[in-house]
């Protein structure tokens, strides 16, 4: 659960993610207003839309999403790539947008676009279990199960491997015969669970 103290300022949060609040709050639905938000909305090409609300006021808000763990990410000008279903809440000062990630759609059948968060401030990610942050350097590329991938920052190249080895590991019936290989310099956020695929619900 995430507690956010507001003193007249505002946060942007996933619709329906607020479980309680104290004090005076107003809620405003964001529907394709700014460029970034439209990005988040249009991203969901299949079915449901990722909708965002702005909460403003004085008091304390409590956010939660399906008993998931909440992880705070501090951004200092860099860009965070995150699956929108894992983005719970951001400082309203952060810009959200959409980025084309190409290949992943072909592996997941879902989500050709990923959400980006940029600027200076904090973003809250939800994950099944506390997220792990893994550093990638040119010497140490990282392989990640697509279902465990949450987000990443930095200059990373990602590509998909369907190696024979990995296929043996996850089995033919699993339907996820890919791993994501990250190369370059950056951080990858991984959740200790592989059940939820990138697209959200399986």
């Amino acid at each position: 659960m995430l507690a956010v103290d507001l003193t007249g300022d505002s946060v942007k949060a996933k619709n329906g993610a607020m479980v309680a609040y104290e004090g005076e709050m107003t809620f405003k639905k964001k529907t394709g207003g700014g460029e970034g938000l439209r990005g988040m909305v249009t991203r969901r090409l299949t079915g449901e839309q990722m909708a965002v609300m702005e909460v403003k006021g004085h008091g304390t808000c409590y956010f939660a999403d399906r008993a998931s763990e909440v992880n705070l990410v501090s951004l200092h000008g860099e860009k965070l790539y995150v699956e929108s279903s894992n983005l719970l809440c951001t400082d309203s000062a952060l810009r959200t947008g959409t980025s084309f990630t190409g290949l992943r759609g072909s592996s997941q059948g879902n989500g050709l676009f990923t959400t980006t968060v940029e600027g200076t401030g904090q973003a809250a990610l939800v994950s099944a279990g506390t997220a792990i942050v893994l550093r990638v350097t040119p010497q140490t590329p990282l392989q990640v199960d697509p279902g465990a991938y949450l987000a990443h920052t930095g200059g990373l190249k990602q590509h998909f491997q369907a190696g024979v080895n990995f296929r043996a590991l996850i089995g033919e019936s699993g339907g996820e015969s890919f791993q994501i290989r990250f190369e370059g310099d950056g951080l990858v956020y991984v959740q200790p669970s592989e059940r939820n695929t990138i697209g959200g619900e399986v």
Binding site: N15, G16, M18, M25, T26, F27, K28, K29, A51, M53, V55
Partner: peptide, 11 residues
């Protein structure tokens, strides 16, 4: 029904 809540919590 807080103003706006209906839209916000429309899960």
């Amino acid at each position: 029904t807080a103003i706006g809540w209906r839209e916000m919590v429309g899960r």
